[in-house]
Computed example of a mutant assay.
Amino acid sequence: MDAMDQDKTALPRLATTPKTLGNLWRVKVGLMAALVHGVGIYGFFDAYQWGHGSSYTISALVHVLLMLDSLPDVLYLQLDNCPGQNKNRFVLGFLAYLIEAGVFKKVKLSFLMVGHTHEDIDQIFSRLSVWLSREDVFTISSLIKCFESCSRKSNITGISQTVLTKKKRVCITVDFCKISFYMLKELKKT
């Protein structure tokens, strides 16, 4: 799981920006993506209507797990070496809770070494960046379509956090306790 540089996903995004619009104020759009090897890529888009700390990381992880048909015994998770979002007591505590709740027998968490921060998902971000350099994008919906079309190698699913909130009837920025008690009961091994 990783987040894309927000400057590259700010809207509107024009393939060729006229000089008169060079200083145009643009809406920041966040993209958090998760690569599930052998299954696909899931991208979560939002217009920064909520914080992007550890709650956001945990929420995206839970939503990816809920979308999978079955869960393995061991969760292998690779995160960026970012203490604010990933490398903190909340994410570690949540992963420990997944084991305690019986969702997984083991969780193997790895962080990239400092200075070597290119994960597998960064290749998709690169493809999206190239795609966006040729497209005029004005809405989050069209940004999601670009994300889903940027690579033919994987099954890519873009999800607007607002739509996901309506479908799952949960708040994306829930605290640790609400996530563990409300959403984890939906996680079942098949």
Rank of each mutant, 00 (worst) to 15 (best):
L184G: 03
D7T: 05
Q123M: 15
L68H: 06
I124P: 02
D175A: 03
T16M: 12
G102M: 05
L132D: 11
S59P: 00
S129H: 05
V130C: 12
T162M: 05
S141T: 06
L66C: 10
K188E: 09
S59D: 13
D5K: 08
L112V: 12
D7E: 07
Q85G: 08
T157V: 14
T16D: 08
V29W: 05
N81R: 09
F45K: 06
L79S: 03
P72S: 13
Q123C: 14
D175N: 15
H37Q: 14
N86D: 10
L184A: 01
P18E: 01
I121L: 02
M113E: 05
K168P: 00
R13I: 08
L164I: 00
L66H: 05
Y76P: 00
D73C: 09
Y42G: 02
K188Q: 10
G22H: 14
L112M: 15
S133T: 03
L92R: 09
H37G: 07
D73I: 00
V174M: 12
S160R: 04
M4C: 10
S133W: 06
F176G: 03
E148K: 03
V137S: 06
L109H: 04
S180K: 08
R26V: 08
G53M: 06
I99C: 08
G53Y: 11
E100R: 10
T57R: 09
Y42T: 04
L98R: 05
V29A: 10
T117W: 01
F90I: 12
V170K: 05
P83R: 15
F147M: 09
H52K: 11
T173M: 14
T190R: 03
G30L: 04
C146V: 08
L31M: 12
L35V: 00
L71D: 09
A10W: 01
R26W: 06
E100P: 00
D136M: 07
L65G: 04
A47R: 15
G53R: 11
L66K: 11
S59T: 04
I144M: 06
G22D: 08
H63A: 03
H52V: 13
F104T: 07
M67F: 01
T16P: 01
W25S: 10
E148N: 11
T20H: 07
T17W: 02
F138Y: 15
I121W: 13
I144W: 02
V130D: 12
P72V: 04
D175V: 11
A60T: 15
W50L: 13
V103R: 11
R127Q: 13
G115T: 00
R169F: 02
F138V: 13
T117Y: 00
I156N: 07
K166Q: 15
G158D: 12
N81P: 09
Q161S: 14
D122K: 01
K167Q: 13
